[in-house]
Design a protein around this nucleic acid. Structure first.
Length: 272
DNA sequence: ATGGTGGACCTTCCA
């Protein structure tokens, strides 16, 4: 089963790239972030025509997360079920696909260290951990995919000097990510490639960052132990992004993990 | 040179 994640930076603007991408890579389960669509504007029929069931949690102008699946999609949950107030933004959606509990997340950016939005980001990450504690067991096959807006290690940043005093690399952010991992989740790409610095998932549109390989790896697939045990491969698809040069690429590249969950999930995906 | 681009939107916010 191939699971993928992509921050598309507006599904309206990116739909031609998304359709090409799904056709080429044939992911079974897809997590999308930054749809920037209201629920009634989500192109569910277009995805259905490509063989995907869908669930979307959107708000319109900003944010918005979705899950697409060729291997079944059920038990949809949006927002946090942690007893707290509803999130002010549409940033998290869950569904069960092919026996795996899947979550698509768009973690708040934080904007500046000590900005209100930075405190919101840290609170948000703590709530994600609470949601896991209150709703799931680390023994389940479970994956959280998406834009975490945190570079887990210095190896995930093109130049640490350029990030001194900036968000995405601070200790409180990395501690909050570690607390989520500490529930029982592993960074799949880093697990498969322990020593592969310099392969990034986000490149600022400005200053030719993509071509200069000046990016950061902030898009992650966190997998529980039982799921990780079946991993066959992982990818941060910088090369796929190259083909879209001059054709309205996102500022994020798609990421993938392949898991061998046995013949049933495989047959379901082949059937569409 | 504090630059650059791209997406949302009402002229500015967000990444």
């Amino acid at each position: 089963m191939r699971i993928a994640s992509w921050n598309v930076n507006s599904l309206n603007a990116r739909m031609p790239r998304v359709e090409e991408w799904l056709e080429r890579m044939q992911p079974d389960v897809v997590c999308i972030q930054e749809t920037k669509l209201a629920n009634d504007a989500f192109p569910a029929a277009d995805f259905e025509a490509m063989g995907y069931e869908t669930a979307h949690h959107g708000q319109g102008q900003w944010n918005g997360v979705a899950i697409l699946s060729k291997v079944g999609l059920g038990d949809v949950v949006v927002d946090f079920a942690d007893g707290g107030d509803p999130d002010v933004d549409a940033r998290v959606i869950w569904a069960t696909c092919g026996g795996v509990r899947v979550c698509s997340v768009y973690v708040p950016n934080g904007r500046e260290v000590d900005h209100d939005h930075y405190r919101y980001k840290l609170d948000w990450l703590a709530r994600l951990r609470s949601h896991l504690d209150q709703n799931h067991d680390p023994k389940e096959p479970l994956a959280i995919l998406g834009d975490f807006n945190i570079a887990p290690e210095d190896a995930d940043v093109w130049d640490t000097k350029a990030f001194v005093g900036k968000t995405h690399v601070t200790k409180p952010e990395r501690d909050a990510l570690d607390a989520i991992k500490g529930w029982g989740l592993t960074d799949t790409f880093r697990h498969v490639y322990p020593d592969n610095p310099g392969l990034f998932s986000y490149y600022d549109y400005t200053a030719g960052r993509f071509h200069k390989r000046q990016g950061i790896r902030i898009d992650l697939i966190l997998a529980s132990e039982s799921l990780l045990a079946t991993v066959q491969g992982a990818l941060v698809d910088r090369n796929g992004r190259k083909a879209w040069d001059g054709h309205k690429p996102s500022d994020h590249v798609p990421i993938y993990a392949d898991f061998d969950l046995g013949s049933f999930a495989d047959l379901l995906s082949r059937d569409g």
